[in-house]
Each structure stands twice: as C-alpha cells, then as structure tokens.
Amino acid sequence: MKVNVCLFGPMRKYRDKDKFQLELEEGATLARLLDHLKIEDRIYIVILINGRRAYEDEPLSDDAEVLIMAPTGGG
C-alpha cells in the first residue's frame, strides 16, 4: 500500500523532502513507518493519520495521509 507522508519542523531532518509517498507492505503499522524513516525520538512525537492523533501501534491504511511532527507550542 501507499502512504503519503509529510514531515514538519525538526522532523524534516529525516528526509531530503518534506512531502513524499512511501510504499509499505499491507497491514504495516505506524511503528513500521517510523522504523523505515529511522526516526529516533519515538516518544516525544506527534503523528496525525488523516488528521487524527495516532500512536505507534496503530495500523496504516492505503492512501493514508501521515503528518509527523514534534510537539510544540507557541503564541
């Protein structure tokens, strides 16, 4: 299956592009995607799948939009 990945802020360091598509095996979880991207700090991270907050152990579906970012704040 294909997932669309978008990296924000400090997460951009994991890839030369901030928006790209990835091919993953059917039934792959978010953890598999994070492994693939070699993302280190796996706890302090915010991931949205199709706009919804998700945690590592959740499965991905075909054509999912995955936003990966560091939690932040601001004014």
Binding site: D41, I43, Y44, I45, V46, R53, Y55, P71, G73
Partner: peptide, 19 residues
Amino acid sequence: QHPYRDQLQVARALGMNPR
C-alpha cells in the same frame, strides 16, 4: 494547558508508552 503534550513529556522522562 496541553494534556496531550504533558503526556508525551512525562512519557519521555519515564521512558514509558504515552498511552
């Protein structure tokens, strides 16, 4: 002011699953 980020900060310090 942000329970979900507090959750991640606590999890990071405890080395625990945020859930």
